[in-house]
Nucleic acid binder design. Sequence first.
DNA 1: TAGATTGTTAATCGATTAACAATC
DNA 2: TAGATTGTTAATCGATTAACAATC
Lengths: 219, 219
Amino acid sequence: MDDKDISNAVIARLPRYYRYLGELKNDRIERVSSRELSRLMHVTASQIRQDFNNFGGFGQQGYGYNVDYLYDEIGKILGLDHIHNMIIIGAGNLGQALVGYMNFKNRGFVFRGAFDISQNVIGKKIGSIEVLPLDDMPEFVRNNNIDIAVLTVPKTAAAGIAKELVECRIKAIWNFAHIDLPVPDSIKVENVHLSDSLMKLSYNLHRSEDDTNTTGAAE
Amino acid sequence: MDDKDISNAVIARLPRYYRYLGELKNDRIERVSSRELSRLMHVTASQIRQDFNNFGGFGQQGYGYNVDYLYDEIGKILGLDHIHNMIIIGAGNLGQALVGYMNFKNRGFVFRGAFDISQNVIGKKIGSIEVLPLDDMPEFVRNNNIDIAVLTVPKTAAAGIAKELVECRIKAIWNFAHIDLPVPDSIKVENVHLSDSLMKLSYNLHRSEDDTNTTGAAE
DNA sequence: TAGATTGTTAATCGATTAACAATC
DNA sequence: TAGATTGTTAATCGATTAACAATC
């Protein structure tokens, strides 16, 4: 498999393809051409074909792409044919929301444990899992084949916990703390910086207002 | 202001600059050069200077950038000198987490209302705001100068609500539903597709495992 | 002034789009 | 076969990096 050095831009588009293909699948549509998908998704057909061909040819000339097959293949590329064992660190509202989000489970992402430092939540149950004290986390990670740690703690706590996670050989961190984690490159980090996202929205909101003004008066 | 057609890539980097400058500010550091910032943030000094110069010269030759000034200017570019009135639609765990996240408030993003269809949450209080029935939403938006709607509802409900939001002239939607919203371009949408993010992490996790295998055996 | 560092132009690199031959 | 549509090469476009003159 020469998955090597495929650009981030391509990878970032795969989940969206996967989503649209899932919908076509639900609608019992058997085949789709890059042209149809292009119209549906508002990206160029050329880009769609280029993207897919990074991973080998999934289509057939004169026919297009088989929806079921393409869906499965993209799923495999994204690792969705594996079960991922996850823990959550920080059992606040956000942590609880993520654990409760059942769609993750459907895709093979399963929460095995939850950890916090607050006596208010330790011992509580989130769905079927009990919140344990953070001190128990390293042992739990080692004993339960945990792949992914989800970090939903205040940013002041995040760096310290990240170091512990490195020590117990976590493979990946899904980071919701508003900080760039100090971990070696061997550990994969995906950041969800919510306030960055909100700031982008804010920028676009004001830009459009500025534009409106600008069109009215010259200079 | 010729904020026009500044690339998305640049905008996406601004919140991160803002964050690092905020930290320097906290540390009472007065000035910073693109070179120092480059070392700190692991981006090229050239990119930093190019990015800032999209908005005019914030620095001074031979000196660098004044941290306080640059912080404020980037804040203004991002619209953080305004108050933003927001509502949340969907008062589940995720909605509650976002409303409770006080840092938004510090940056001028203030939740004014919360809406849901479930009798289980209508009437409940989230912080200081009461959850109202979704039917009350359009009037509330019109009467309270709401800029941003935060959408944390299941994807089946999202499209319909988006249409209502368009009708009551919302300016922007922060969308957590796993769907591309059917709204005109005049309404700004920022998507937070959590499962897309998790899939990217999954991809990178497996890619690194493949690499490990590959380095062992040739071909 | 000399040294430092920006602002900005030019060079490079990478990603997207267009075009078309291959082929089902 | 003829028509459709891919896979892939070439052309274009845009973003990043390098270089350096301007200037504090």
